[in-house]
Structures are given as C-alpha cells and as structure tokens.
Design a protein around this nucleic acid. Structure first.
Length: 597
RNA sequence: CGGGGCGUAGCGCAGUUUGGUAGCGCGCCUGCUUCGGGAGCAGGAGGCCGGAGGUUCAAAUCCUCUCGCCCCGACCA
C-alpha cells in the first residue's frame, strides 16, 4: 500500500492536489460505481459477471472496457507488485508508443505475416502505420540505436502499456479483449549463457508476482507462436473458464500446453511378427470407427490418413486411428505457418480416394509424415487407395517409405507421460497469465542489432521477452477467489482493505462513533471503503459481500450492545467483536494474520 | 470468417406465432414510516421497441437490408 499516491482533482479549489488521504479512504455514497441487483445477462464467466455486477468495469464495445474506480485501484496494486518484482530483477521501466510506423513491422516481416489481428492504417501523410499489439519491433529498434558496446549488456527494460489486437473473437469479459494492458519486458544479452542465466530469474519473479496476487499458476512448456524463439514457458492458472488445455504428468512434473505437449500413447496392440499385407473388402466403411468395427479390431490398430495443404503442398499424415492430429505440432514439424486441411480438389489432383486413402503406394509428389504413435505397434489396417477396400497388416517402414517418426499427436487424458516411465497425463483448462520467451536473435537478426565485444569483434545481440496480461490477471484472481455472493479479494490486490458498514440509521451519537472509527482506520494507514449510505442492512451487507473487501467492520446498535464493533473476514463465516477503543488494533491484527503481503 | 442466439426504460424480462393506444419486476425521484441479510405505504419520472427502407388505414409485431451484442468453432501472445 505505502508508496501509492493518487492525483486527485479538488472540486472546491479547482486545483489538482496530492491528496494521500483520498487514496486511503472513500465514502460509498460518493464512489462512482453502481451495482446491479441481478446478474448481467451477457456475462458467462464468473469474473465477467462479477466485474459487471459490482460496477468495476463497463463495456464500450466487443472486447473494449472502461475500468471504474474499484477495478482501477486493484489494477494499480497489481501493477505495483509487478513493478517491484521487475525492479528486483534489475528491470528498468520505460514507456513505448502504441502508434508505430509500419516500416518497423515490415522490417521484421511481421507486417506481412500477422493477419488482421494487427491494426493497420494510413496516416494523413499517407504513411502506413500500425497500432502496436506487442513491442518487439520498437524495443529492438531502440536497442540498435543505443547498444554499442558489450559493456552495456546485459540489461532488461519493461513497460506497462496498452496493446491493441483486433481479436477475431474476444470473450469472457477481461479474459480476452481487443485493447488491454500488458507488462512486457525485454532483456538483451551478449551471449546465450547470459540469457540462459537471466531467464530463470524472470521465471522466479513471475512466480512471485502471481503468488503475491493470490494465484498459483502452473508453468508449462509452450509453443512460441508468432513471437518466435528457442524456448518458452507459459504460466497457466488452472480454472474452468480457461481457453487453453494444460497437460500434466501425475508423477514427474512434466507440464505443457496441449498445443505442443509431447505424447506417448499407450501401446494397445503389437503382434510378435509382421504379417504379409492382405487386401480386404470394406464396402461403405469410410470412417475409422466403421472400419475397425467391421474388421473386428480396435481403432488403435488402424492407421488413419489425414491430409493437409501446407503452402499448396499436399501432406499425407499417417497417425494411429485413435489419436487426433495436433495441427500446431504438425505446423512446427513442417516449419510452415500456412497449414489447413486439404480440400477435395487437391486430393483428387493427386489421385487419392477419401475414406480409403493409404500411405502404401502413394504417388511420389506427396509428402508423408508418420506420427510416432505408429512406431509402437504393427500390422495396422490402412486404406487400399481404392473405393471399398482396406489393407491389413501394413507395417512401417516395410510397406511405407517413411524413415522417421515425428510427434504430431494430440495429448489425451490418460496417455503415458512422454518424460517419465510411470506417469499418466491429465488434462485441465487453463488461463495463460504470462508467457516468457528466449527469443534469441529472431529480432536482432531482422533488425541488425550488434555490439562490439571486448576484442572489438562485431556480434549479434541476444534477446528474451516476457509478458503478463494485467486485465486477465485481475479477472483470474476473481475466477479463483469468489463465492456465490461475490468476490473475495486477497488483501494484496483488494481495492480497499476494510469495508466499514454503518448501521447508524440517523442515530447521531452512533454516527459520530462511526466517523471516529473511519478516521482511526485511515490514520493507521489502512484503506477504507465506508458505506455511509442510507440503505437497509441487507443492501449494505450484500454489496459488501459483492465487493469482497478482506475485512468488514460493522458498527450498529447491536454491535455496541455486544461490546463494540463487529469484525468479519470476507473469507470466513466467523464474526468477532472488538471493543470500540481497540478496534483499529484488532483490525490490523486480523488483516496481518490472514492475508497475503 | 462459418454456426447458433439476442437487441423492447438503468438492470432482468414479457409482448412478435395471430398487426390495433408499449407492459411487468427491480432500480431511480419526492414524502412519511422503517432499520442486522436486497423494507412498507403513497405519489412520480423514464422507452423513435438497435437503425434504414418497404407492405398496410394501422408495424415492437410482417418483408428486405443493415448495425450491434453474446456463445460455439476457425484463428490467436
């Protein structure tokens, strides 16, 4: 808390002033915020519902939101945590423009390679521009202008800045939006050992940031996607509303995004010997399930054929019948960004019969890719490449010209762990809170970022980059910390520490007592939201539960009769009475004993 | 971009099938009473029925076109 100052406009004097007390406290009657009594119909995920219902955010358009005071206060606290941890690992905060000349993005090729997600426009002087969806180009350009000597390396800069992405599909309130805030950090190194040494420090800082925000995401091995680079980890919060699938081993700690999870499907069937191929009639049986049932074998004994169009080239994927192709892994294997299922015309051109396609006796101009799931069995059923027929006892490489197997299958619940001998994989939904990359020289090569080493030799700068989505983090905290009545904020990121409820109802003496407590709590350095409204107890308590501030302090006739003020943690059912003159001490003790730093 | 759903008062919804003066609950405003889990009574304000064309004596309702929002998929650090 300490360290925060808020710029506030003073209506009476007409001047801006630093007003520390205003940051600490707020009367609910004055707060710019209104709650809904009913759940907003448009929201599906819990965080979206609660953010709208509590008046923390309001939509302006699809995936575009205004943060109202309560939300912004939490966001400022999240940002403060992030700044502390980034500074702790020697980060230096900067701020880069959202408005970028397209030229920069052409230089790295992303202007061309990224789709409509990148907002492009032309300025009044007819210059092509983009709105930054991330800042590798800008920071790398900055680096090449500034970096001259090895003496300047390594260093890390970071910023908390707006990103614009014209998402094809925003959803879930703040979980996926078109305009959002990201903490993005970039490190620059003289060599790979330097990057390799720094990367774990970021990894640890990330875990500390999330822990301080009340979260415990799983770090997973991830696909590098459009960012490129040699290695990356995502920090996945395991919640039901997550868009990603996290694959984890129950034994060895292996964890990966399903986008690139390695797999080792169980061996279901393997004969002692490879039998001779044998053509069988399978009239009308085109799907794996139909063929398997017809021939009395399990789908795992079949060899499925899936066809892709990779940059116009036909790719034949052979994979065990019970396993799905993972297109991201396939695209990475083929080193292509342009991959789609092949259409009928392309198949026809190569003389392939859909439903009965076979890797046996394929035309030469078709690339065959065999998944390693096929490696662990034999005598598969495959298509015969003519209508109404399949072939039994197909074996690789005996019958199919494939030299090596690749891992392009989709992980399933219950598959064997690819890392350890005994582990079993489980799947869970996750939200990607942060992503860290060893970029290597992807951008420094494209933009020629060099330095002179200690022998005067010109060398390429090595980069890492590290992002955290702020709004997504806020949403995820709510996804994890709530009940059916509302949010339950960890103190570290709560809009206020204390929710002071007055049930004085016009009794002047009691109002005076409440004002006194209000003042004392502030004087003790606690941030207080004071419900001074003329509302019924039910309304006040329900709003308090909805807002979910860590500690509720109630002052009423009843509490006074019981001996003072009533204290109730939002996270607990229990209430405690504190004597009026010791209320602040009790409040501090309870808050400090219970919540995150 | 494909599939589905929805646009009627601040919020939640009915009314559309079968055209005929725009409704309900909550919230909001005023007054009185109430005051520990979404108070009561009385009075009141608030809507070009998303928009534009059309059909009709008459359109929230029927037709055409549009715009917007939500969900699923494609896509995506």
């Amino acid at each position: 808390m300490s360290g925060f100052r808020m710029h506030r406009y003073d209506r009476l004097s007409g001047h801006f002033s630093w007003f520390f007390g205003r940051w600490l406290a707020m009367r609910l009657s004055q707060l710019f915020c209104s709650t809904y009594r009913e759940d907003p119909a448009e929201a599906q995920t819990i965080s979206h519902k609660l953010l709208l219902k509590s008046g923390m955010i309001r939509p302006l358009g699809t995936g575009i939101y205004t943060y109202l005071p309560l939300a912004l206060r939490s966001i400022h606290k999240i940002m403060a945590i992030i700044r502390e941890e980034m500074n702790r690992i020697d980060g230096q905060e900067i701020l880069m423009p959202v408005l970028n000349p397209a030229e920069l993005w052409m230089e790295t090729g992303r202007y061309q390679s990224i789709g409509n997600e990148l907002v492009r426009f032309v300025d009044r002087a007819k210059r092509p521009m983009v709105l930054a969806m991330t800042h590798e180009e800008v920071v790398t350009d900055l680096a090449r202008r500034e970096i001259k000597s090895h003496r300047q390396l390594p260093f890390m800069t970071y910023q908390i800045q707006t990103k614009i992405r014209d998402e094809p599909r925003s959803r879930g309130g703040l979980l996926r939006v078109r305009e959002f805030h990201m903490k993005d950090a970039y490190s620059f190194h003289a060599d790979y050992p330097s990057l390799d040494a720094y990367y774990p420090r970021v990894y640890q800082a990330y875990q500390e940031i999330f822990r301080r925000c009340g979260l415990d995401p799983v770090p997973v091995e991830a696909d590098t996607g459009m960012m490129g680079g040699t290695g990356s980890h995502e920090f996945m919060a395991l919640v039901e509303s997550g868009e990603d699938t996290v694959v984890r081993c129950n034994q060895c700690g292996y964890a990966a995004n399903s986008e690139n999870a390695m797999i080792r499907p169980p061996i279901v069937h393997k004969d002692a010997d490879e039998l001779p191929m044998e053509e069988v009639a399978t009239p009308g049986k085109e799907s794996i399930d139909d063929v398997a049932a017809f021939l009395g074998v399990s789908p795992s004994q079949t060899m499925k054929a899936v066809f892709y169009n990779a940059e116009g080239r036909l790719v034949f994927v052979a994979i065990r019948g019970d396993i799905e192709v993972n297109e991201i892994k396939l695209a990475n294997t083929l080193k292509t960004a342009d991959l789609a299922l092949a259409d009928a015309a392309l198949l026809e051109k190569h003389g392939i019969v859909a439903g009965y396609a076979s890797p046996v006796n394929l035309p030469n101009d078709v690339t065959i890719v065999a998944d390693r799931s096929l490696e662990w069995g034999n005598n598969y059923v495959a298509g015969a490449n003519k209508p109404g027929y399949h072939v039994k006892h197909v074996n690789i490489p005996r019958d199919v010209p494939v030299n090596n197997f690749v891992d392009i299958g989709t992980a399933r619940e219950g598959d064997a762990c690819p890392r350890c001998e005994t582990g079993i994989l489980t799947l869970a939904r996750g939200i990607e809170l942060g992503h860290i990359f060893k970029l290597g020289t992807k951008y420094t090569d494209a933009m020629n970022v060099d330095y002179l080493d200690d022998s005067g030799e010109r060398k390429r700068v090595i980069m890492g980059c590290y992002g955290i989505g702020i709004g997504r983090l806020l949403s995820t905290i709510i996804e994890v910390h709530h009940d059916d009545k509302g949010m339950i904020w960890p103190r570290s990121v709560a809009p206020f520490d204390v929710h002071l409820v007055s049930l004085a109802a016009g009794a002047q003496e009691m109002e005076a007592e409440t004002e006194k407590v209000y003042g004392e709590l502030q004087a003790a350095g606690l941030s207080v939201l004071f419900d001074d409204r003329d509302e019924s107890p039910g309304v006040k308590f329900n709003d308090a539960d909805l807002y979910g501030l860590p500690l509720r302090v109630t002052l009423s006739k009843r509490s006074l009769k019981n001996g003072g003020v009533e204290l109730k943690l939002r996270s607990s059912k229990d209430v405690e009475i504190a004597p009026l003159n010791k209320a602040v001490g009790f409040v501090k003790a309870i808050l400090e004993s219970t919540n995150l730093v």
